[in-house]
């Protein structure tokens, strides 16, 4: 298991060294790696995941299509998982009264950047990655999310090629809100499953 992705100057030095070698050998142009990373991150934002969630709340047909084939369904709201080198499979899971879902990548930090923006530091931390599979209820409580004892918790480990997104439960008292207003309620933590919405 790799260590914390942040604050490791040894890793940063190695990355810079490899980058310099790739440039020296003409395998990549100067600055190309940074440009590619910028391209990959461009447009990636939790606002995208929030739009998907809001549409799922107001349109049960969309919700069904989303849960059955997320890659096809998100095109209906103008989004795609094809921004990287290859289209990645998206698996969307929806919270219900009986079941709460939470996402982790125990092996590294896999995560749908296009829909959630760059991942938060805690998502990449060894503490979150190792503990949430073992004691999700305790970890969620530390995030301030206390679930009823009867609510089952499902942890999804992004250990291979799929990326995950959690559709939270629509909050009560939001009947009169527009789809756009509803999207404004959804947070990045909600999309990962470490917050209720």
């Amino acid at each position: 298991m790799s260590g914390d992705h942040h604050g490791s100057s040894a890793i940063s030095e190695r990355v810079r060294h490899v980058e310099a070698l790739l440039e020296a050998r003409g395998l990549v142009d100067e600055g190309e790696i940074d440009r590619r990373i910028d391209e990959f991150l461009a447009g990636g934002s939790p606002a995208n995941g929030a739009r998907i969630t809001a549409r799922a709340w107001v349109d049960p047909g969309f919700r069904d299509r989303l849960l059955a084939d997320a890659n096809a369904a998100i095109r209906e709201v103008g989004l795609s998982m094809a921004g990287g080198l290859q289209e990645q499979r998206l698996k969307v899971v929806a919270n219900t009264e009986d079941e709460h879902n939470v996402v982790v990548c125990t092996l590294c930090s896999c995560y749908p950047i296009a829909l959630l923006g760059p991942s938060p530091a805690w998502y990449k931390s060894e503490a979150y990655r190792s503990r949430v599979v073992r004691d999700p209820r305790g970890v969620l409580e530390e995030f301030g999310l206390e679930l009823p004892a009867a609510t089952r918790i499902s942890v999804w480990d992004a250990s291979a090629e799929s990326r995950y997104l959690v559709v939270s439960r629509r909050p009560e008292g939001t009947d009169g809100m527009s789809e756009e207003e509803l999207a404004g309620l959804v947070t990045r933590k909600g999309l990962i499953g470490t917050a209720a919405v």
Partner: peptide, 9 residues
């Protein structure tokens, strides 16, 4: 533990 863990294998 009473939760479930889904892993991609």
């Amino acid at each position: 533990g009473d939760h479930a863990v889904t892993v991609e294998l």
